[in-house]
Amino acid sequence: MRKKIILPVFLSALALTMMGFMKPTHTEKPDKMKKNNLVIPAKVQQVIDQSCYGCHHSGAKSEKALKALNFDKLTKLTKFKLVGKLQDMADVISDGDMPPKKFLAKHPEKGLSEQQKTLLINWAGKAAEEIIEKK
């Protein structure tokens, strides 16, 4: 009788312990590392979520914004296309073209601070260079 209980208890304890060792993967957007190995650091992701993701994600209503950039599909791009998107991101932000002025007039809270701009520009530029160097 006792033995019958011990085994399941032992097994579930083991399972629980192992789960503890497994790192929690991103639960919100699980497909982050599919085709290329683009990794978006949490700090950068936070800024993207705040200022960019609203228009540049699958299901957003502006086709123009989606054609230009869709964060949900970023990792499914070929290296050439991904490098292009990253370089464009850096340019568009440093030129002050994104987020669009019209949009910011309605949603000033989505604007980028100078620090956030620098963070995004540096990340995009570095990520592009890394892909190119590793080719």
């Binding site: 050439f80 296309k81 490098v83 292009g84 370089q87 464009d88 592009a128 260079e129 190119i132």
Partner: peptide
Amino acid sequence: SRKLKMLN
């Protein structure tokens, strides 16, 4: 990197 940018 410049070539890629130009092609894009």
